[in-house]
Structure formats: C-alpha cells, structure tokens
Amino acid sequence: MTQRWRSLALLSPWLLTLALFWLFPIGWSIYLSLTDYQLFRDPSFIGIANYLALLRDSDFLGALENTFVFVLGTIPVTTVIALALALLLQHPFRGRTLFRAGFFLPWLTSIVVVALIFTNLFARGGYLATLASLLGFTPPEYGFLFDDRTALFAIMGMDVWMSVGYYMLIFLAGLEAIPRELYDAATVQGASWWRRFRSITLPLLRPVLGYILVINTIKSFQVFTEIFVMTKGKFDTATIVFFIYEQALTTDFSFGYASAAAYLLFLIIGLVSLLPFLAFARQRRSLW
C-alpha cells in the first residue's frame, strides 16, 4: 500500500463525517449568504450585497468590536494563567489531585448553569458587588451586568474563570511530552529555572501552545451562550455570533444576511488563526 492510500484510509473517518454531515450544511449556508433569504420565503440571488451591507451596519460593526475586545482581553490572560497553573501542578506533591480537580471543576459545569450562577454573583447586592465595596471600589449601581462600562468585562472575567482549567489540562499533557532528561542535563550545566523554561519548556511546548491559541481564538470569536443567558446583548455585549443568532432566528429571520455575517466571521477567524502559524513559521516544524 502506498503512503498516499494509507494516509487516505486513516483519514477516512473524518472525510466521511465531513461529506455526510458538514459539506451540505456549509455549502447551503454559503449559497444563502449570497441571497436575500428570509425563513419561510423563497431566496433570490443578490451577489455580495449582504456582505457590503454588513460593513455599513452599525449593529454588526459594534458586535465586531465587542468580539475583538473579548478575544484580545481573554486569550492572553487565560493562556498565561493556565500555563502557570500547569507548571505548578506538573510534578506530584501532596494535594495535587485536589488542585487539579478544583481548577477543572468550572469547565465540568454546564455553561448555562455557570452563566446563571454568575448572573447572581454579578447582581445588585451580590457577592462581587460586596467584595468590590470592601476593596474600596464603587460597584455599578444596578449590578455588573447592567452597566456599559462593566458588563462585557464581567463576562470576560467569567470566561477566563471557566476556561483556565481546561487549557491547564492541555498544557499538563504537553509538559508530559518533554523528555525529563533535557531538564536534567540543563540543571547539571547550571541553567537557572527561567533559562530552562525559555530554552526547553517553551520551544517544546510550541505545538501544544499553537493548538491552545488556535482553539481559544475560534472559541472566543464564537462566544455566544454567556451573552445569550446573561445580557441578551445589552450594554455593549452583543458579539458576532449573538448578532447572527438574533438576525437568523429571532427578529426577522434574515437568514441570508446572518449567513453572510457568519462567513465574514469565518474569514476573520481564518486570518487570525493564521497568525500563530506565521509567528512560528521560521521554526523547523510548521504549526499546521
């Protein structure tokens, strides 16, 4: 069997899934993005008019801005905290399992439930408002989720809280792949902890780090459930997927328009997830 056929055979589960379940829905929605389709009505082809209209739609542009704030604000914080926790929990010590489970617990909980819990914590007179007053800050009068200045950041904070444990776990797996001998050799040569981290840990974590950045980029650009449950897009928290949801399935069922927004988002995510690829392109192994 040639390498090409072997490769295809191994990839067949994915190719079959793609063909059976994803190709038609994706192709259909790409087509709809070029039509004026509203649910229950016949679509007619209008070229790229939807895309052009989106670029002038202040609701869409507002959602785009909020989404970028969300992405840029959460990913670095989540990644750094997750890596730090993974490094602290890498080697066995008494209580390690407790900490691992404790940090991972938020991710085990359904996001709807998490969002409902935080709706309470963020509420007027809730725990976080009390905590803020104790620390000398003035919490927003009607709760963190009902103020233009705090709502999006409150949701971002919750998102970091929720996803840190998950990325920590992936870092932990990545750290396991680094041969212990490399550290031993470096220690013998008198390399400092920072030196070992810079020259061994980070470079060898690169594929896993790439995974984390790409996946977190995709997930963050598509943030939806938190917004839907907590603010319904009010107080400058509408994100692109929330915009798509509202357009497609609630306000006027403008499915074609929403599809166009989805494929603009597709392009944005595609370009942004290329960034880590370009950043690492000089390295020996490509990321993708």
């Binding site: 649910l39 229950f40 399935l249």
Partner: peptide, 12 residues
C-alpha cells in the same frame, strides 16, 4: 429560552 428557535428551524 430556545423554543422559538426550534419552532423556526422546524417550520423553515
């Protein structure tokens, strides 16, 4: 929360 979406999807 999501019932209306399901109705819309099904009718569509």
């Amino acid at each position: 929360a999501d019932g209306q979406s399901k109705i819309a999807i099904a009718f569509a």
